[in-house]
Design a protein around this nucleic acid. Structure first.
Lengths: 342, 342
DNA sequence: CTGAAAGCGCTTACAG
DNA sequence: CTGAAAGCGCTTACAG
């Protein structure tokens, strides 16, 4: 592979001058620039990023860390964030990290090697932030999880309240006169989604209790991974354990879709026999038939607020991080039937 | 941030010895190892990858390039590939590249900076491979697209035949006595999915013609991006232009889902009024109601074959690449109605 | 406007 | 088993 040294030799200029051309510095003669650029083209030369970053030429852009690979909620968020950042001419580097990976540790490593201007975390496990975020020195924003209880001056967060969301789900089903409701939650033991499971369950159950409706954790709750197949199994379990069930609340839309098929295979229909409500409000909920009711975390609002924040704080690093709750939106559709209306 | 130099100073050993400990070399005394590891822990020291790779310590693993962010077919493939590679104790680095980015150029850059043992491309634009793959020097596999017409000795490909797949879709609809069929394809002008659009259309139309069934490109074809919203619009267009339509073939499952909602909003039902068949056979097709018929590219088989190949050729680099077609599978479900059965 | 040289944080022969 | 030193491919003051 051609190096800057080869280009220098080939053009007769020094590597210093070649470097200046590569980095579009103004202090180069027109002639040198042309000669060197031509040879760079011919040789298909691309500067080695390792060497470049080793010199700590800090930060051409913002690094976006996305937690998990096939998460439609987060990829939707990513798309909107990227659009905003693109519109404001900010360079961006997207890094996907596996569910099982500590995204904060990865970010610290990234920071030491690339020194970006700032980080945007789409999804994340708050435990990692609590324990290690002090290693991050640049302005950052956590999106979709709250960091309000952490008080790192360089960390903002924009999130929806899980208790509010699951209360809303409960109210919606109660309004439609459901009292026998099953819940498909994440695994408490894993809780790899940064403490989503506990508050979503708590908000739901407390709301039922407030209305005097009992909830038997042993019978009416089934844990599952945030995927179709496992949610299918969980829904089956709920249907078998609760023959009188009239509704299911799933902690994600994908889980709700898994439950949908289980309901059907159990010989029941949505919403005639079982009403269904999910969480997140991803695009696909509006396309299936019947449309899936959901508690929508508005990705557009989250993305706009987060990018606005990070851009402002990069410009003004003194500015302390904020923690802002974005209101949830109820998407009530034909997947919920009012039991009192025939 | 702590560097290897700091660790050396703190422990009293030289940076050479520290380096040996970091890289788990055997030629270090037990005492030195313990002392140094302890300080590394305390300092939260992590070696700078830029510096590390600058020395070309080639290749601890395989780099997996995934084309596009929210593609469920490719993330499914990724999951399976990763499992296989994990089972064989191979390190892996996943890189997602945007649809609009030249994945081969990125791979060449990656190769020069990280020198991996091999590349796995999940999805890709064959034009980039034709034009630039000669810059890639390590064993590679392209999955889901054919590179049979390229003859790079270090490139294998595992793919399903698009003409066969779309013929199968056509046969399936013809068997069910459909003759008025609309097609939702990708954009010919963009063709960012590596020439998927042309063969999928060709196989379909030729099969219709073989059966003496006419196809009016102007009326019966609607182009769209591979997403819900645009496919919805395309389907609407087809329904309006062809009031006698009885079936729709979409070039991806996601497109088919977009079409499904359009059919419904048009006051029609699947499969009673419109039969529907998609392409890819992603998991979600088996969960919606009615299940979506599809031409399935078996991700398990593709993943297994691709990982087997890359591991073998890394071990034996002399071995030339192969180009293997994986058979498609028809998933015929209740989204297709036989017009002759009431 | 250009070149020579130091140095970024590592690894790796080479001595000992 | 350990250390001193060269060098990976760049960038960046510093001279000129």
């Amino acid at each position: 592979m051609a190096t800057i040294k080869d280009i220098a030799k080939l053009t007769g200029y020094s590597i210093g001058t070649v470097s200046r051309v590569i980095n579009h510095r103004p202090d180069v003669s027109q002639k040198a620039r042309e000669t060197i650029e031509k040879v760079i083209q011919e040789q298909h030369f691309a500067p080695n990023a390792n060497a470049k970053f080793l010199k700590r030429v800090h930060a051409e852009g913002i690094a976006i860390f996305v937690k998990g690979y096939g998460n439609l909620f987060l990829t939707d968020l990513l798309e909107k964030v990227q659009k905003d950042l693109h519109d404001s001419d900010t360079e961006t580097d997207v890094v996907f990290v596996d569910e099982s990976v500590d995204e904060v540790r990865e970010a610290i490593r990234y920071q030491n090697e690339r020194s970006p201007k700032g980080f945007l975390f789409l999804g994340g496990d708050t435990r990692h932030f609590k324990e290690e975020f002090d290693g991050v020195k640049v302005p950052s924003v956590l999106v979709s999880q709250s960091a309000a209880d952490m008080s790192y001056p360089n960390l903002s967060s924009y999130y929806c309240d899980d208790i509010e969301g699951s209360s809303l789900a409960a109210e919606t089903l109660i309004d439609a006169h459901h009292t026998k409701i099953g819940v498909i939650s994440g695994y408490f033991s894993l809780d790899d989604h940064g403490n989503i499971t506990a508050p979503r369950l708590r908000g739901f159950v407390e709301t039922l209790h407030r209305h005097g409706i009992p909830f038997d954790l042993k019978k009416q709750l089934a844990e599952a991974r945030f995927e179709l197949k496992d949610a299918y199994r969980a829904a089956e379990q709920l249907l078998i354990q609760n023959p009188d069930l009239t509704a299911i609340f799933a902690h994600s839309d994908i889980m709700a879709l898994g439950a949908y098929r289980a309901v059907r295979d159990h010989g029941l229909r949505v919403p005639e026999d079982i009403s269904l409500i999910g969480y997140d409000g991803i695009e696909i909920t509006r396309y299936i038939v019947p449309r899936l009711s959901s508690i929508r975390q508005n990705t557009k609002k989250l993305a706009d607020a987060a990018t606005m924040d990070i851009l402002m704080r990069i410009r003004n690093p003194r500015h302390p991080g904020r923690h802002v709750q974005i209101p949830l939106e109820l998407m009530k559709t034909d997947s919920i039937r009012d039991l009192n209306e025939p």
